[in-house]
């Protein structure tokens, strides 16, 4: 446990000290600000009352969580696919302890960042998030999935650059998928199987929990995603160690 805490603390510091990580806080707020301007424009000049900001802000914040996969994948590349790998492997730290500590540090950072962004959207943009306990549950779940996906990205990329590229693509896909149900204004127009899939993807399940829409169903979906990503990361992680 002492070793875990030592490595965890090291990577928590590194996550918070890296100025590039501030981007994941700033970018969704920039987008939300743009949505607010658009909503104001629609209301002031076209007299259209929309709920565009609310509809987009939550998926935007939750979708951005997935960019944090780069934290874990990046640090693992930096330390485990470089000469420092030998330094770490020759130490009395079990590799699984190292991996878990890096993931836990990434998890803490992404939950913290998510909470900050949520707080700013409440104060600056009057976004209504409902029950904050559920918001926290969703943030914990999505950031956990994000860290597991970071391990998978690390495993299947050869260096930090390709890992960062894949993390961004992954983040963009997850955000796109999160916004898709919102853009499809009338979900009943879509075929039922597509509706079901869209409503049970990680981010849309998170939105449903927050929006009190099929909450139990959506929490179950999040748990299934956690199980899938954890199993994949565990199996792939074992292969990596061998």
């Amino acid at each position: 446990m002492r070793n875990f805490i030592w490595i965890f603390t090291h990577y928590v510091k590194k996550n918070f000290q890296d100025p590039a990580n501030l981007l994941v806080i700033a970018l969704p707020l920039v987008f939300i600000f743009a949505f607010q301007l658009l909503e104001n424009y629609l209301f002031d000049f076209m007299e259209v009352e929309s709920n565009f900001l609310y509809g987009m802000a939550i998926p935007m914040v939750l979708g951005f969580q997935f960019f944090c996969a780069d934290l874990t994948a990046g640090w693992l590349h930096y330390d485990m696919k470089s000469p420092t790998r030998a330094r770490l492997l020759v130490s009395p730290i079990a590799p699984k302890v190292f991996y878990m500590a890096v993931m836990a540090a990434g998890w803490l950072f992404s939950v913290f960042y998510g909470a900050i962004v949520v707080a700013i959207t409440v104060v600056a943009f009057n976004i209504e998030w409902g029950n904050y306990a559920y918001v926290l549950v969703v943030l914990l779940a999505l950031s956990f999935i994000t860290q597991m996906s970071g391990v998978l990205i690390f495993r299947y990329t050869k260096d930090e650059k390709s890992s960062a590229r894949m993390s961004y693509v992954f983040g963009e896909i997850m955000m796109g998928v999160a916004i898709l149900p919102v853009l499809a204004a009338n979900m009943t127009d879509l075929a039922r199987p597509i509706q079901t899939i869209l409503n049970h993807l990680p981010v849309s399940a998170g939105i449903n929990v927050i929006a009190n829409y099929n909450r139990l169903d959506s929490i179950a979906a999040l748990l299934v995603w956690i199980a899938i990503f954890t199993a994949a990361a565990f199996i792939i992680g074992r292969q990596e160690r061998q």
């Binding site: 590194k14 330390d79 000469p83 420092t84 030998a86 330094r87 020759v90 130490s91 009395p92 730290i93």
Partner: peptide, 20 residues
């Protein structure tokens, strides 16, 4: 076997330092 690692030091041919 992690218990032997406490008594073992490795100076690698590559520089294994944390650049940050």
């Amino acid at each position: 076997n992690l218990s032997t690692r406490h008594e073992l030091g490795l100076v690698t041919q590559d520089i294994t330092l944390f650049s940050g």
